[in-house]
Amino acid sequence: MTRQVSSASSHHGGSEATDQKRGLTVIAMLAVFTLVEYIFAVVLDAPAALVVILAAIAVVKAWLIVMYFMHLPLVWQGEEA
């Protein structure tokens, strides 16, 4: 899974099916992280720790979207012709 996602930054590099599969992997990870942050918010009764955990999860989620859905690496890698 990690290998599959790590190559996703090359915008639409493979076939349509490959790109769709990458998207599915990313959205699955985002769903899991969202569920985890919700569970932490419900069960954890330490406000300071909760803020740190939720902030860390939010950063990871944002990174996934920026790198794989928004194709940030293309800003410096350039477009494929």
Binding site: E37, A41, P47, L50, V51, A58, K61, V66
Partner: peptide
């Protein structure tokens, strides 16, 4: 559209989850 989503990724815990 993804940018709007990224913003909500930070707004959701800040508005709903922290306590």
């Amino acid at each position: 559209w993804h940018f709007v989503d990224v913003v909500w990724v930070f707004f959701y815990p800040a508005l709903y989850l922290i306590k």
